[in-house]
Design a binder for these strands. Sequence first.
DNA 1: GTATAATAAAACTGAACAGTTGGTTTTTAT
DNA 2: ATAAAAACCAACTGTTCAGTTTTATTATAC
Lengths: 199, 199
Amino acid sequence: MQKRAIETRENILKTAIGIFSGHGYHGAKVDQIAEAAAINKQRIYAYFHSKAGLFEQCLSTVFEGVKLFDDNAMAAARLEPSRLTEIILREYMALHKKHPYFWRMLAWANLENDSSLKKLPGLREKDYTSLKAVFGQAVELGLLPGGVSFETYIFTLMAVSYFYHSNRKTLSKTLSPELFTGQGMEKLIAECSVMIAAR
Amino acid sequence: MQKRAIETRENILKTAIGIFSGHGYHGAKVDQIAEAAAINKQRIYAYFHSKAGLFEQCLSTVFEGVKLFDDNAMAAARLEPSRLTEIILREYMALHKKHPYFWRMLAWANLENDSSLKKLPGLREKDYTSLKAVFGQAVELGLLPGGVSFETYIFTLMAVSYFYHSNRKTLSKTLSPELFTGQGMEKLIAECSVMIAAR
DNA sequence: GTATAATAAAACTGAACAGTTGGTTTTTAT
DNA sequence: ATAAAAACCAACTGTTCAGTTTTATTATAC
């Protein structure tokens, strides 16, 4: 495949991620993607052979493109294990801001597209091992409560950041709109850190 | 409207909730709903006048049909405020099992259907006031950490239970499949209670 | 028992949509 | 300069789908 072809393919992929994440598999239209990418529809079929194939590719591209925990954040966590919860939460919140397609593609995949999940990248344990080590230290230092597994801890932080973004619309109607201002988020992060910390 | 008509309408609504929650607005087909409800398609238009109208009705029906906190659970919480976190979490987990359409309709609404959100039931503060009181007592008794607002506390528990159900498929691939066994859920509940408790 | 409301059956309309095809032009590697 | 690869253009196929219409049947109220 030539350079131009690779660019076209990537252009299609990038555009399709935007549209699929916005409207879902059934809501997105192939013609719409072609128009948005400013390419000929036929190119889509040349490179991805079907709408479903394109969707699968979008899903795994988004998955692979998101680094769950930054090296800088890792360094910060090692320096100040007492602030671990805050650092992780802030990192996850920033991640969702940086990769706005991530949670949406996750949500779509969980809701509508069973088949495309089969080809997901496998376990991400390696992403977690360093973090798990710092968590272990924080527990031993008495900074975080004992008797809580790393899985539960990280699950909770993922849940908070995911829920915050994915249910924004309904939550601002049913719980509190202030939650979604900058200060609201800061308050949430700060209070979660307090709530989870050992005392 | 006569009795039979009311029944037909409710039958359509109930069936449509099942199908919309399963496939989303764009994924669900009107003919499919008609067939599943064993009624004539034309009845749907007679009672809901459009697919979008039917979806809106489904959404608010599901919302109104879910009582977020049971009276029994409330009584239990008042009796044992030390077990508040566990009681709430277990209640929310059970709620998602009892109303399997709830989180899915929530998710669809947050993803794809802006317009239908306008007609959502307003703030649910009344659902929370009693709970908030018990939370306040638990904090004063030193059972739960101080400096944490009720909103943050309840947000976290909602996040955990929602995330657990809504991201089952991807999480069992990327985090841990054991999390979704009966024991896995019990462990999660128990450890969250410990993690959040004052010590 | 008769009028009226509710429903069924089924065919139809018009638009949208996934995917294809064939012919033409542009770009790129050599 | 030229051949191969890449991309365009645009019409077309077959299907699906939301919504409609017409005619006929069944249930219910009085």
